[in-house]
Amino acid sequence: MDDGTSRTYRLLPWPNRDGNPCYLSSDGNGLIDTLADEMEEMQLALGAEILGHAGELLAAEGVGEQELRFLAERLGESLRDALRVAESRGGRLRE
């Protein structure tokens, strides 16, 4: 049945329980879409904040291995999130 709406699959900014990509079939105007938009904004803002802390930490003297390892883990998580947001938004631009 064609109700006149255009439904697409959106990559969500969080993985499923198994750590795999999670998609939403939607017209782009639902509650989950709004939640995903807010989550993407939070992920990007947190990534920018972590990047700022990285500059400060790397400029400081006497930084230990544990601090650098923690920083690298957070930067990796932030990069993964940013790439997922870019993939999701890029997919929606092509539609």
Score class of each variant (00 low, 15 high):
Asp33Met: 03
Arg92Gly: 04
Leu46Glu: 15
Val85Gly: 07
Asn16Val: 04
Asn29Lys: 12
Glu61Met: 10
Gly30Glu: 04
Gly30Met: 05
Ala59Met: 11
Gln66Ile: 03
Arg80Ala: 14
Leu44Gln: 11
Ala59Glu: 07
Leu51Gln: 08
Leu71Thr: 00
Glu40Thr: 09
Gly19Asn: 03
Gly4Tyr: 12
Gln66Lys: 09
Thr34Asn: 13
Leu24Ser: 02
Gln66Cys: 03
Leu58Gln: 08
Asp27Phe: 05
Leu35Cys: 02
Met39Lys: 14
Glu56Asp: 15
Leu44Tyr: 04
Pro13Asn: 05
Leu44Lys: 12
Asp33Gln: 05
Met1Ser: 14
Val63Lys: 08
Leu11Lys: 04
Pro15Gln: 10
Ala45His: 12
Gly91Cys: 02
Glu65Ile: 12
Met42Gly: 03
Leu44Arg: 03
Thr8Cys: 00
Ser25Ala: 10
Ser25Cys: 10
Leu68Phe: 13
Val85Arg: 05
Gly64Arg: 06
Asn16Tyr: 05
Thr8Lys: 04
Ala60Gln: 15
Glu87Gln: 08
Asn20Asp: 12
Leu44Ala: 03
Met39Pro: 01
Gly4Gln: 07
Trp14Ala: 04
Gln43Glu: 11
Thr5Ser: 11
Leu75Glu: 02
Gly28Gln: 00
Glu41Trp: 12
Thr34Ile: 08
Arg92Cys: 06
Gly76Met: 09
Glu56Gly: 08
Gly64Ile: 08
Arg10Ile: 07
Tyr23Pro: 00
Leu31Trp: 10
Pro13Phe: 07
Leu12Asn: 02
Leu24Trp: 04
Cys22Pro: 00
Asp33Glu: 02
Ile32Met: 10
Gly91His: 03
Asp3His: 08
Leu44Gly: 02
Leu71Arg: 00
Asp81Glu: 11
Pro21Cys: 01
Ala72Gly: 06
Leu83Gly: 01
Gly28Thr: 02
Ile32Arg: 04
Gly90Val: 10
Thr8Ile: 14
Asn20His: 07
Gly76Trp: 01
Gly64Asn: 06
Arg89Met: 12
Glu49Cys: 07
Glu77His: 09
Gly47Leu: 07
Glu95Ile: 07
Gly4Leu: 08
Gly76Asn: 08
Arg69Gln: 13
Glu41Ser: 13
Arg10Pro: 00
Gln66Trp: 04
Ala59Lys: 06
Ala86Asp: 12
Arg17Thr: 11
Val63Ala: 04
Ala60Phe: 06
Glu41Cys: 11
Glu65Cys: 03
Gln66Asn: 07
Met39Asn: 09
Thr34Gln: 14
Ser6Cys: 12
Val63Gln: 09
Gly91Tyr: 04
Tyr23Arg: 06
Glu40Ile: 06
Asp37His: 05
Leu51Asp: 00
Asn20Leu: 11
Arg89Gly: 07
Leu44Pro: 01
Ser6Phe: 14
Ser78Phe: 04
Val85Lys: 03
Val85Met: 05
Leu68Asp: 01
Tyr9Gln: 14
Thr8Asp: 01
Arg89Pro: 02
Cys22Leu: 13
Ala86Phe: 06
Leu57Met: 09
Leu79Cys: 06
Gly28His: 05
Leu11Asn: 01
Ser25Lys: 11
Glu95Gly: 11
Leu46Ser: 09
Trp14Leu: 11
Val85Thr: 14
Ala45Asp: 14
Leu51Tyr: 00
Ser88Lys: 02
Gln43His: 15
Leu68Trp: 03
Asp3Tyr: 07
Ser25Phe: 13
Arg89Ser: 03
Asn16Cys: 05
Gly52Cys: 08
